[in-house]
Design a binder for these strands. Structure first.
Lengths: 230, 230
DNA sequence: CTATGCATCTCGCAG
DNA sequence: CTGCGAGGTGCATAG
């Protein structure tokens, strides 16, 4: 990763043509060849950029560029589309490089995890008198999202998905088969809970005696906010 | 603009929860309080970020944070939504600030303008023997994209859109009404040119005697490149 | 001001 | 690999 702070102008020619007049900006040059041109404001979107895969080359300066005060010029060309980004540098305020290594990447305690958390807190949404046994109930083939008990004390295994598809039903089915062999749990009722359940998945689930539950994420979140105020 | 290169971990809580494990990253702190967390790869989207309007505060370190090796911690809170970004810094490799000033901003020669330019250069695409009169032909209610003459010398008004919808047809219709009252121009034939014309728009246009022309942007651009080689 | 549509969108998943 | 939909989308324009 190389970071250059410089007085520069930028031209882009690709899907559209764009030009950035001369000004001080931050240029971020990533090791995959990509370039971001950032100003001191706006959101995360750069003023101009080139996405990978692309290659950066330093251009030979022509006399007139030299006369115009340009001290360095880069050409960044996209490997597939041929889109071109040309950065003309008039003055370099700072130029530094850092070895960052490969990033472990973002862990999204995404919506599914959050849904699980919310439903655990609002387990009565599954049915009156239901009580939480535990989240991530471990079985031999993996964790069931939520294990609960209904008003009569019978086991309820809940699989949570953001978008409920066939494969989610299959997954829950495997858990149910296994859990129903455990005398301490059986009989186990299955509940397939999701923000959105696809018709095919609903059909398959109901055919297997699994109950479908559509979750209203915003309402659940609102409820939570009301309870805890974050 | 402050740029920090540091070994850090990042947590976000807002519409979703997200966590970035400890690693070396580039932190861009803009003067409006916004923060971008970039790794050495990917596209222009940061791994994590906070958009303005927001405010950054340095947190008092608790003992256990200190014991964990954290040397500094920032909290960035969005002014409206309350979304929170927490950056825990374990080691700071580099920390520099630069005064950039206000950016003059991006000048886009957008696709519609480019299409207009290309079609003006390749006016024969409208029909054999057509000749350009002028681009941005001014009328009392605004400029017509292109005014041309057909092989017989009759006026042709061309409205150009990237995606042709109903409103584009309405716009051209207004121009045509006005221009057809001008004896020096009348009769004026209308041409609705776009990369893609929606069925409803096509129906409306043809019902009003306006000719539809689908433009192949890439082919026109290719033609241009072939002529000028950029 | 909010609502709507586009984007050099980016990103991830299903088919 | 390609097409489709969602996004902490961002962004400009119309109403």
């Amino acid at each position: 990763m190389r970071i250059v702070v410089a007085d520069c102008s930028v031209d882009y020619a690709g899907r559209l043509s764009a030009h950035l007049p001369r000004a001080k900006r931050v240029l971020m040059l990533k090791s995959d060849g990509s370039v971001l041109v950032h100003s001191d404001g706006g959101s995360y979107k750069p003023l101009n950029w080139m996405s990978p895969p692309c290659a950066l080359t330093t251009l030979e300066l022509e006399d007139e560029q030299h006369d115009a005060g340009i001290v360095e010029a880069w050409q960044v060309v996209h490997a597939k589309t041929g889109d071109k980004l040309i950065v003309s540098l008039f003055e370099i305020m700072s130029d530094s490089s850092h070895e960052l290594g490969v990033d472990p990447g973002l862990i999204k305690d995404g919506v599914e995890a959050h849904l699980q958390e919310l439903l655990a807190d609002q387990i009565e949404l599954v049915g009156d008198g239901h009580q939480l046994v535990r989240r991530e109930y471990m079985t031999a083939i993996g964790p069931v999202d939520i294990l609960a008990r209904d008003a009569a004390g019978a086991s309820v295994a809940i699989e949570i998905k953001r978008r409920g598809g066939i494969d989610g039903v299959e997954q829950l089915t495997r858990y149910l088969e296994l859990m129903n062999r455990d005398p301490a749990l059986a009989p186990v009722q299955g509940v397939f809970a999701a923000q959105e359940i696809k018709p095919q998945a609903r059909t398959l689930a109901e055919d297997r005696g699994i109950r479908c539950l559509v979750l209203d994420y915003d309402a659940m979140r609102g409820m939570e906010d009301h309870n805890t105020l974050f």
